[in-house]
Nucleic acid binder design. Sequence first.
DNA 1: AAGATGACTAACT
DNA 2: AAGTTAGCCATCT
Length: 122
Amino acid sequence: MTAEKPVPESQDDRYKKIWAVVSSIPEGCVLNYGEVARLAGMPGRARMVGRAIGRAPKKLKLPWFRVVNAQGGISFKKGSAPYTRQRKLLESEGVEFDQDTIDLQRFSPEQAVDRLLWGPDG
DNA sequence: AAGATGACTAACT
DNA sequence: AAGTTAGCCATCT
């Protein structure tokens, strides 16, 4: 019989894990790359998250735009087409920008849960 | 095969 | 505030 895979997770499995975390981000919320990596069980692999998102099949309809950098900003060059596209998608969901950054605490999935439990007024 | 690159981040200067 | 250094690791040249 064939033995089990010597490596429990292939790179494709890791990508799938990342995609699963990204697709779990609720509407109107954002997460930064490092957090997505942590939630996917790979702390410190922030760069891999950006890579995984870029390679995700369109078929998945991944909410890639809900992932921003640790400063609460969009990691594309400001003013570029991708930057504008991502920003509009976020704003259309109710995510507010202060200049060019988002309050990560306020728009975290954790806070979304609090709103459901306690209401928008806290 | 070896070095550069990048949708990153945290720590330090 | 802005630049540097170090850690990360799959991909690309």
